[in-house]
Design a protein around this nucleic acid. Structure first.
Lengths: 125, 125
DNA sequence: ATCGTAGTACGGCGGTTGTCAAACTACGTC
DNA sequence: GACGTAGTTTGACAACCGCCGTACTACGAT
């Protein structure tokens, strides 16, 4: 095995690929709203909220190309909506729920709930 | 006579200038977020929330030209964020708080509170 | 070392956005 | 009716956005 007892996220984080995130005080409300105003990005946020802790980009099955996908994740990250870190060749994403809650209480929850309602078509029995 | 004893707001509303608004079920979350993602429009929403019931466009003292101002009000109205009606030559605007609350509970409040915090300078003792 | 995988970076394309000035319209008043 | 006021409309322009394909990089496995 090329991976000894070091298989924690720190290994990947320590190697070549560092990812820049805005500090909480750098997160601007307009940027967050703009990031979430796009259907694809809103969908990403929704899946991150619904789903598991961390998700690789590939797990999303988005209706856009690979490079467009990268672009959307970048917008979300630079707006401060998500946090990303590498795990092997996969870039894992997670919502920055705590940071956003501290800055804009209730905002993320309201957006996600609103998205759930809008997107939820007929939910019959 | 084209204008009899009718001098109530209904007269203005009934005369030549009709304004189209989206019905509640036509209001889309992405459009609302996009509308509020612009600094000028967010400021308009903030002043409408802070302020009086209805406000004329001219009461805002925005850092843009007249026609740009018209444009921003139009975006807000078409997104379903504000409702407008004529009163004489003034176009009065009001937040559609109830409609938005019904569609996206807590969203408008969270955005406005977030905007208040962001814009609020240091809050010293 | 080579190859496959996951994702980034670059460059381009077309549509949208924010901005303005200028011309126009509707209303109230003199 | 003439004038001022409040706002709209049109047309233009630069900037930005979302989208793509291609070329590239980093990591893991064979």
């Amino acid at each position: 095995m090329s991976t000894p007892e070091l298989s924690t996220p720190e290994r990947a984080a320590a190697s070549g690929r560092r990812i820049a995130h805005p500090r909480p005080e750098e997160i601007r409300l307009e940027a967050v709203l703009h990031a979430l105003a796009d259907p694809v990005r809103l969908r990403i946020a929704r899946e991150l909220a619904n789903g598991h802790e961390d998700m690789a980009c590939i797990a999303f099955d988005l209706p856009v190309s690979k490079s467009t996908s990268t672009h959307h994740f970048k917008v979300l990250r630079e707006a401060g909506v998500i946090r990303q870190h590498y795990d092997g060749t996969s870039r894992m994403s997670r919502l920055r729920e705590d940071d956003l809650e501290a800055l804009f209480p209730g905002l993320l929850a309201a957006v996600l709930e609103g998205a759930r309602r809008s997107a939820a078509p007929p939910d019959p029995a």
